[in-house]
Each structure stands twice: as C-alpha cells, then as structure tokens.
Amino acid sequence: MLANYGYSDGSGNYFITIDTDMCNGCGDCVEACPARVFEVVDENPHDPMNEEPVAIVVADKKKKLKYECGPCKPASDRPPLPCMEACKAGAISHSW
C-alpha cells in the first residue's frame, strides 16, 4: 500500500509517501528524522486485518509537514533527506 500522508493547499502539495509493502517496521526513520515525523505502530491503521508493524507519519505532524520538513529542505544544495537515507528498504518518498 502506498500511504500518502500530508496535504495539498494553496501553496502546493506536501505529501510523504510510505510504501507499506516495503516498510518492515524497523524504526530507523523514527530516529533519523530531526523533527520526529515518523512513528512505528503495531499494525497498519489502514489495513486492520494485517498485524505487522509499520511506520506512519505522526498524526499531529500530518497537517504541518511543510514546516516540519522545512529545515531538511534548503532551497539550494539540498543534502539527501535523513529519513530517505535511513530507510534501507527505500519505502519513503517526498512529493516536494
């Protein structure tokens, strides 16, 4: 499942996509993110019949991703994002 967390408003699209088929729930992204955007839950909230741990975006941060992720996204010379680098499975992607 491609879980798109975030929003689109007048200024643009701000979504973090987690591919739950790739995510193994290891939690490396939780530690890597300086803004603590991720958390690992015991089961995918959008697939109640499946009981495997998976990373999701913290509910409180979903509506302010533009600002939470801002410090990792300077306008020029953007380094690789810590969350995407930490995810060995390659399950995380950003829309902006």
């Binding site: 499942m1 491609l2 879980a3 798109n4 929003y7 689109s8 408003d9 007048g10 979504f15 959008h46 697939d47 979903k62 509506k63």
Partner: peptide, 12 residues
C-alpha cells in the same frame, strides 16, 4: 477492497 494507495486531504 484492500487499500493499495490512498491520499486524504483534511487540512483544507
């Protein structure tokens, strides 16, 4: 009926 991809906009 299992979700494969979703997007929700509840901010705006």
């Amino acid at each position: 009926g299992k979700v494969t991809n979703f997007l929700m906009n509840d901010k705006c």
